[in-house]
Write a protein that binds this DNA or RNA. Structure first.
Lengths: 338, 338
DNA sequence: GGTCGAGATGTTAGCGCTATTAAAAATGTC
DNA sequence: GACATTTTTAATAGCGCTAACATCTCGACC
């Protein structure tokens, strides 16, 4: 850093200001510094930064055992941003029991984290958020269905995404569509269901929805499909609330000798690994998980820095990231009824 | 740390020595310090440590897009150990092309890492290892099949594990067993095949092996199973070289109306997420991925510290971690021939 | 022209830890 | 018991960066 400062003919402090995008640096100076940084190939030392910032920049991440692919995306996103902004990621494992969650949060707090990222399914854990709040630690829920008044939230528009997917199926001509719900304890499950129902209700000619419970596991998807397909008038498309369940649906269809998408269209949600692992590859909704994790980390960092002087005043952040409909080969035109 | 030192009646340096297991501290002193550490709930600051150690403790991790579940386990293991030993993980993404690999390594090296962890499939990338060596950076290959003379290795005994699984199938009475090979460019594929063949050859009464190519993807497993099952004398069990392919095998069996394990036993390898996601849950071999990542990180740290004074002398480390046979419901007694 | 003030930069003092060097205590030797 | 030798412990100086405050620059205004 000294070298950069010398090369640019300024003091180290100015370099620091430039590197951190602190306002109050003349544009020309900033440019000179930037050029020096590039020429010398300088990159700041995360450890030193974290140290000088008084241990700020320690961020916790609670994880249990979600869809695995989900976790790796979360980790990659968070780690990436952590590196960029010089934060230190402290990850802590727990299972879904309340004690375990509480214990993990305790470890995180005593580890001196400024904030904690709560990916699904912890994003909907009221006790976890309350616990964090009690300790004065910033909480960011990632992948929850709704905005919250007591915690920052990073999410996608599950309602709109489910509606998009439903519209896709309707446009392919399907009018009898099965839906496999997600786990009850996650708010996204409800949002996705509502988005589905909203589109079904508002279509012309009218469509019929066949709704089955599920809990985000492959097996529950398989079983729901078994029930749906043994209906005297089975659906021509099934929309499962996540990819694991959609894979289960495909398996159930294959077991009955049904072709996908020839006889049955299948749609998933999340675009996790399994979506492209199974065959045919799943039509699904891409959830920008890595980007969401990045955003969550950024929120913790921003809040922890600004929150020091100004009292806890404002509303929590609610950041919504765009989703994307991914059409692959598991969905197709409605079969012609003989 | 000051507090701990005061509480224990020693200097901070002694505390530092104790925390780092440096030899040259009297046993009694060490105990006193330990007690003080516990009573005060002290935990060292990773950032400060990394800073003082002159930036040592920066470790790179190259990842592409492996089995997803694999990546998250690697990350969790590495991150966990990184935190414990105060190292900083720098992760870098790349795809399988050589330029991309080289570019990622370049970024890592200029980021000043002491070593780089290469999980599969990069573990078998000769150019990557050579590149690292050129830059004088420690390389650790994780999940390769063989020991190497030019890089440290953390692995499991793929040969023995495949043999174990084969023996399991033989003990269930199967004598006509299909095997789906892994990708050609990974050494573990060969090890697993050899382990399988070894057991098949050494069994009484004699067994028959039906070997099909595969490339670790669900689809290749599916297709291999299609070929195996359309044999006039189909196997009663299929052993796939990883879980994704095993899931494909199960799907192919279901599609033909075969019950698993009633008509066909299926075995996988790795015990990734998909093993318990599909139904029936897969009998597989547990690969201790997280533990392997931990070990890899530790090797980098140890080597980088000791390597400073003594010249590059000794053989590279070859650490083999134990595997475990996981019997679930996808494997069963050989069906009685009618 | 001189004073004021706001914005732009520079200075200094650590953040928590470890290397290094110096000192003290324990051990051994005759 | 005096001295050399080996442990074991203490003191001090940074690692690379940023917060807080000090200083400077320069135009506005009386």
């Amino acid at each position: 850093m000294d070298q950069v400062a010398q090369h640019a003919g300024v003091s180290v402090m100015t370099v620091s200001r430039v590197m951190n995008n602190v306002p109050g640096v003349k544009k020309t100076t900033r440019e000179v510094v930037m050029r020096a940084v590039k020429e010398l190939g300088y990159s700041p030392n995360a450890a030193a930064r974290s140290l000088a910032r008084h241990g700020s920049g320690r961020v916790g991440l609670l994880y249990s055992n979600p869809s695995a692919g989900y976790l790796s995306e979360i980790l990659v996103g968070a780690l990436d941003e952590a590196q960029r902004s010089g934060a230190l990621l402290v990850i802590e494992k727990c299972d879904l029991s309340l004690e375990s969650e509480k214990a993990a949060i305790g470890r995180l707090v005593s580890g001196g984290v400024a904030g904690v990222i709560l990916p699904a399914p912890h994003a909907d854990s009221q006790p976890a958020i309350a616990e964090l709040q009690d300790h004065g630690v910033i909480a960011v829920a990632v992948g929850t269905g709704r905005s919250r008044s007591d915690a920052n939230v990073v999410r996608m528009d599950d309602f709109a995404a489910a509606a998009d997917m439903t519209r896709h199926l309707l446009e392919l001509g399907h009018r009898r569509i099965g839906f496999v719900k997600g786990a009850e304890n996650q708010t996204v499950s409800m949002e996705r269901l509502l988005g589905f129902e909203h589109e079904i209700r508002n279509t012309e000619p009218a469509a019929t929805a066949l709704i089955e419970p599920g809990n985000f596991t492959y097996r529950s998807g398989f079983e729901a499909a078994e029930r749906l397909l043994s209906d005297p008038q089975p659906p021509t498309a099934i929309f499962a609330s996540n990819d694991d369940m959609a894979a289960g649906v495909v398996a159930a269809a294959h077991r009955r000798g049904l072709d996908v998408p020839g006889d049955l269209s299948v749609a998933g949600f999340d675009d996790t690994h399994i979506a492209t692992a199974v065959w045919p590859e799943l039509t699904t909704v891409r959830q920008p998980v890595a980007r969401m994790a990045e955003a969550a980390l950024r929120i913790v960092l921003d809040e922890s820095r600004s929150g020091r002087d100004r009292a806890r005043d404002g509303k929590p952040v609610d950041r919504m990231l765009p989703h994307e409909l991914i059409v692959r080969t598991s969905s197709g035109q409605v079969p012609v009824r003989n």
